[in-house]
Nucleic acid binder design. Structure first.
Lengths: 336, 336
DNA sequence: ATTTGGCACTCTCAAACCCCGAGTGCCAAA
DNA sequence: TTTGGCACTCGGGGTTTGAGAGTGCCAAAT
């Protein structure tokens, strides 16, 4: 039945706007469906029967269930693009960033502002990027700092101790050799590219080289927890008192990086992913919706970003915002 | 009058524990003062007269005013140290950090956990640290990445464009010259150390050198907003419903770096600073107390950290925690 | 002069209660 | 299949009431 869908749409619309259960009369007056409230009541009874909406209590209006939102979102197949003004605002704001940290920061702020939700942005994955440059800095006390600069502008550094003193010249040599070996190489390929390196050196330098290589590999590998930036947490506190029960656990969850990664991390064939209420695998998020998207790297996305908010969010606007921001950030990050 | 102070202390104690106004009877039974409730009532009347405590309404107990907390804290002159177990827990947790970012992150988490408040940690100030190393990386399209590594392990990078192509060799030369000029030099002294640098080069390289130097100086100077890490925001949502009115603006404030800096930034001759309620210059914080401390660098502190929470926090414990964490982090950061 | 027990008084909070109105479900007519 | 009518339900807001906690003050005791 076509009209039933319209009724569902109307309910979601109203409920997202007002936050209150919506009755048959309200729909009839606000939305032009050409039928009387009684007819709408019949449709609503049917929708409830099928599990798309539910009534908090006998004499209240209806609110959409997760299933209802799902149907609504699925109908909303084509994401309507943002206005030109919005687009250019996004672009100029992001272009002002001076480095990767700044890009990530600005992206979250932007998303949070655009959607009035909590924004979560994952740094470009180490696994899928390549080495741009390796830098070795000699420190006092036989220590060496290893700095790794990635394709995407990410910089990581570690300090390692070496067995014997090493001169500036030797270090320069190391640097050149290392860079010619792995500069431009994907992170995943670095280990075997580097496996033989110490053996190619004079025996008195092998120990030192091994330490440095070990430190380098550590930097590459031992970061299973990807970096994540969050912002807009105050947005969930702003909307009235109803949500405060779910607020504390949510805030708590947002401070656990592991949780966030799981939240965004689930792979999706589609670019834009909407997870509604119970569809989220995390218990803390049964009342929340996550709108997320891959960004960067075209078909092989290098990271994800998204927003999390109440299930009665403005899906249309938020999906558009996430999608648009993802595409801009993706461009900026891959361009370097 | 000595006993009045004891009564005030008892009121603060009770109120911090229970969160509810405390009456004369409760004090008489829980705290051994050797006097009857009636006597305590007299003292309370006097304390109220002097503005140290107040009654929410006629038939409720009393709660401390900001002024009362202030007196209480001032009496609490000597911060009692943490237990050995706590100390070693702090130490081992912080020692696991692999780099500066990690240290900062761990510090906030730790503080938030120890105090059950919101923890705020400022990165070691750029202004007061020195250059450890400058790194130049050649990129495609006549671009050069300038990487600046500080004393404290902080790494900043920028990309700049140069006028003419530059060879690896020349870049190496630049790097060496730059490093010999400013390695070990304080950030504030870098500009004039570098002022003459381009002139010392052959004329065909001056333009390039100037670009790089300009970029370097920009990296040094154009970061008036210091980096800040916050964590434990969920802690303010946890404590019941009374605070939710002040919660949203507070969360909002915590997302504004500028606000945070102001919050911590006010210089203090003393190491440990407690700002109670209206003593805070920020309107959003009239119901909040900030406990902050310098850390690192001994007499010339390089940054600050602290916690912010409700005015009825456990001052003793929180002051101890902030103080202890500050001293450990300070040690770690200055050791590099 | 200070402390103490007694006592009348005040005020909040929670429970009980009531009632209005929104919204429904169903039915019979169109 | 749609529509208007109508009886019914139930939640939320406002008011009322009673209990209890706590106070201030006074007169007696130390």
């Amino acid at each position: 039945m076509e009209r039933r869908l319209s009724v569902l749409r109307a309910i979601v619309d109203e409920f997202v706007r007002s936050g209150e259960p919506v009755g048959s009369k309200a729909i009839a007056s606000r939305h032009v469906l050409g039928v009387s409230p009684a007819t709408i009541r019949n449709d609503m009874a049917a929708l409830e029967e099928e599990g798309y909406i539910t009534a908090p209590h006998t004499s209240a209006g209806r609110i959409p269930t997760d299933k209802g939102y799902r149907l609504f979102v699925d109908q909303l197949s084509n994401v309507k693009p943002l206005s030109i003004a919005e687009k250019s605002a996004i672009e100029t704001f992001l272009n002002q960033a001076v480095d990767l940290d700044d890009v990530m920061l600005r992206t979250t702020k932007l998303l949070a502002q655009l959607t009035s939700q909590v924004a979560v942005v994952q740094y470009p994955s180490l696994q899928l990027t390549a080495v741009r440059h390796v830098e070795l800095v000699s420190l006092p006390n036989r220590k060496v700092m290893v700095v790794l600069i990635s394709d995407t502008g990410r910089v990581e550094q570690r300090v390692t101790e070496i067995a014997t003193d090493i001169g500036e010249v030797t270090l320069d040599e190391f640097r050149h050799k290392l860079n010619s070996l792995i500069s431009g190489v994907r992170y995943v390929d670095v280990p075997w590219k580097l496996g033989e390196f110490p053996q190619t050196l004079p025996s008195d330098q092998r120990a030192n080289a091994a330490s440095i290589v070990a430190c380098l590999l550590e930097t590459l590998v031992e970061r299973p927890e990807e970096k994540i930036v969050v912002s807009g947490t105050s947005n969930i506190a702003k909307r009235g008192q109803e949500q405060i029960r779910t607020l504390a656990p949510l805030l708590e969850a947002l401070e656990e990086n592991v949780v966030l990664l799981k939240l965004l991390g689930e792979v999706s064939s589609d670019d834009l992913l909407v997870k509604i209420g119970h569809e989220n695998s995390l218990a803390q998020l049964v009342d929340a919706t996550v709108v997320s998207s891959n960004y960067g790297g075209g078909s092989h996305a290098i990271a994800r970003l998204g927003v999390v908010g109440s299930t009665h969010m403005n899906y249309e606007a938020n999906m558009a915002a996430v999608s648009a921001v993802a595409s801009y950030v993706g461009r900026i990050v891959t361009e370097g």
